[in-house]
Amino acid sequence: MSYEDIVVEQADGWLEIQINRPDKLNSIRETTAWEIMEAMAAVEMERSCRAVILKGSDKAFCTGIDTSEFTIEDNEYFDFYRFRRRTRKVNQLFRELPNYTKPVITAVEGFALGGGLELALVGDLIVAGENAKFGLPEIKLGLMPGGGGTQTLPRLIGKPLAKKMMWTGRRISAAKARDFRLVNHVVPAGQAVEKARELARSIAANAPLPVMFTKGVIDRGEDMALADGMTAEADVSFLLYFTRDRQEGLQAFREKRAPNFRGE
């Protein structure tokens, strides 16, 4: 399938999606969001695809939402509310990405601002080049985060730091983002994608069903009571006893060889 706003590459074990709107510093419009969702949906049922890497350019991962599409006539406010609530692709992307069943790794070079940072936050892992800049500058425009940032960022770095970032609108460096535990890795500029591939390769070597189950239990368990979260973990952990990959993993361990996991 050909795309207008993204470039898609199938690697050995994962999918790479590059936001490709350099003239707009990779800001997201409706077309961009729809294409990202379509590309990810196309491989969600493919067992050979074990992860997804989201990336941008050396200058910018993503600088937020393309405001040129955010125009509302005087008599259309309620219509836009319904559109945003029900059918707007940008909003759907932020809602659906956390429920994707495979790990999503974001490789950030340059700017990850506003909706761009929020897009990274609804993924699973973030790798940053040392030149990366992160921020939620909406407050400077009389706005506030609208892609989940008020919910995802405090859960990751705590309320005080999240409030400071949002209320000042300041950008932080990759090193500071690592100090805040916002990113998993900081690497030399230009090497974020390669580090993301290293992570994807490591994930792809493991059994995909436990990866999927742990992703779901961790993400849902964050909003559960501890006892409920432990029950959820125990239930899905028990299901793995009946998989062929479990048998293969144990057999490979006994035979001192690399396992051949097939996601079944």
Rank of each mutant, 00 (worst) to 15 (best):
I17T: 04
R82H: 14
E76G: 01
E248R: 09
T106V: 14
G221A: 10
K89F: 06
G13A: 05
E130Q: 14
N260E: 15
F253K: 11
A200T: 03
L113Q: 05
D235M: 14
R29N: 15
I28R: 11
G221V: 08
L239Q: 09
T150H: 14
G263D: 09
M165D: 01
S68H: 12
L250P: 02
R88M: 13
E73T: 04
C62L: 02
E264T: 04
I53S: 09
W167T: 06
I172D: 07
F180S: 03
K55P: 02
L125G: 00
V127Y: 03
K24D: 00
G158V: 03
D58P: 00
K102V: 00
E4N: 12
E198D: 14
E16V: 07
N206V: 00
V8G: 04
D12R: 09
F61A: 07
G116W: 07
A175V: 02
R84K: 11
P98L: 06
S68G: 08
Q247F: 13
P259E: 08
T63C: 15
N75V: 02
G221P: 06
F213G: 02
N260P: 01
G64H: 10
P22T: 04
K164T: 07
F238V: 00
A192K: 08
T87I: 04
N184E: 12
L240R: 12
A258S: 10
Q18N: 00
D228H: 14
V217T: 10
V236S: 12
I218M: 15
L239V: 01
S48E: 15
E9T: 06
K55W: 00
V127W: 04
E16L: 04
A175R: 11
L125E: 09
Q92E: 13
I218D: 04
G114Y: 10
R86S: 09
M45F: 05
E46Y: 01
Y241M: 06
E222Y: 08
A120G: 06
C62E: 05
M1K: 07
R29F: 08
Y241I: 00
K159R: 15
M212W: 02
I157G: 11
T214S: 13
A189R: 13
G221K: 14
E16F: 01
H185V: 03
I72F: 05
V108Q: 08
N184H: 13
R262D: 05
V104H: 01
E35Y: 03
K176D: 14
I28C: 09
D223Q: 09
K176Y: 07
T31S: 14
M40F: 07
K140L: 15
A162L: 06
E16I: 06
Q151D: 05
I28Y: 10
E255D: 14
M165F: 07
F242H: 12
D79Y: 04
K55G: 02
L125M: 12
M212F: 00
V52C: 05
G249L: 12
R95P: 01
A196E: 04
A252V: 02
R85W: 09
K159P: 02
I53L: 07
E38I: 10
G115E: 08
M224Y: 13
F111K: 15
K215Q: 05
K24M: 08
K133E: 09
T101D: 12
S57P: 03
L161W: 09
I65T: 10
G190H: 08
G221N: 12
L143Q: 15
I19D: 08
G13D: 13
N20D: 13
A112Y: 06
K59T: 11
V217G: 06
Y100D: 07
I17H: 08
E76Y: 03
Q151L: 13
